[in-house]
Design a protein around this nucleic acid. Sequence first.
DNA 1: AGGTCCTTAAACATAG
DNA 2: ACTATGTTTAAGGACC
Length: 446
Amino acid sequence: MPPSKKPEVSRVSMASEQSPFAQVGSLSELPQEAMPKADAASPTPRPEDEELTNLNWLHESRNLLTSFGDPVLRSVSPVLELDRDHGGPPSPSPPPATSDPPYDLKHNPNCKPPYSFSCLIFMAIEDSPSKRLPVKDIYNWILHHFPYFTNAPTGWKNSVRHNLSLNKCFKKVDKDRSQSVGKGSLWCIEGEYRHNLIQALKKTPFHPHAQVLATPPVSLQAFQSMSSPPLWPVSPFFRRNGGVLLQVPQGVIQNGARILSQEVFPGIRPLPIIPIGSRSAAVRSVLAGCRRRSESDPSGDPPLGSDPKEDHTYSTGNGQSSSLHSSGGGASREAGDVPGDGEDDDRCRDRREPRDAAAPTPDAAPPQAQQHKRRQHWTTKAKLRVSGDSLPLKKRRTQKPPESDDEEMKEAAGSLLHLAGVRACLNNITNRTAKGQKEQKDTLKN
DNA sequence: AGGTCCTTAAACATAG
DNA sequence: ACTATGTTTAAGGACC
């Protein structure tokens, strides 16, 4: 494809001067161990690992959401559709964007968010009760929580879409028929990569709760006493579903919804606690089931990350980590983690190509002239992919069989995983507390 | 210096 | 026809 002519001027120093996201909170900073590989090649995570993961996630989600629940933020949020619908506070037009740091969400809500788009999208999706959002609602969430974007050039929406499309962490799920009003699909977090996103958030230097993250509360009480994150009852999707995911076995998801709305967040009723081991087993079982299904069921999404080498994200590794990553010899890095780079392409293929198009013909792609090594690589791979299919991309996508209950179940499993994590964490906290009390008693006795 | 990550812009296709 | 959504390519800056 001929390079699109672009006004050189429009791009000059763009990233450095306009981008609110320049390399802050980069997913590339993710430690290698933070990359879960839910494939056959990696051993089943030990309960302790899971525990740690869950703990992190719990704090993380809570903290990150908490940071956006700031009333100051709310009060300056633009008047959104959601607010209008629900009598949300009418908002004054936000002050003009100020030049950045110190990053202070609380006192300068209009400052540039230090989060990457990946993180923003992640937070938006995670903040929704059903853990999936249409693009429009992602926009809304971002606008709602980061007034900066109300005055930002509209390009950010493009970036959001670009991220959704390109980033492995995000998965498109078709709306079921009852919900298929309006365009587009719902976007959710690819379970395997949620961890990465959490880590990325954690790495954000300006994270308002960095201290909290550094010193997580040691007790359930302390944990629960933390300030309250915003729920998002105004989400149209949430409203549609009455706050509960529909189309899935009621007990499972309704319990899940209960956990989300009452357990992680304030005023939450505790759930029955189950041993971590059994939970892990259950989670693994669910995971395995999903994986099995997605591998064996040709109507389902192609398996994601079934090959460790393909199990990469838009942003799961920087130079260092990628070298750690490369266990498979010299070629491993060449399938880099950059957007559009080889592995990302693999991921694109994973996500977008139907199984019948899974055999792109390498020869079909003529080698590109070497301008940029990386771009050349990417372009070549992209051509491989495209050439392997006879259908236009969109057609290939839409040729997918209609979303089945299987897909719903997969999603439910994803929610379950998340919730299981929450539960395990609480379980752990409670156990620790109980254990500590018992030990204290014993000590006193002696 | 080169590689990588991320953002931004733009072109294009498709769906509603 | 128009707009929103989704995909892809390209380029530049920051960072390591």
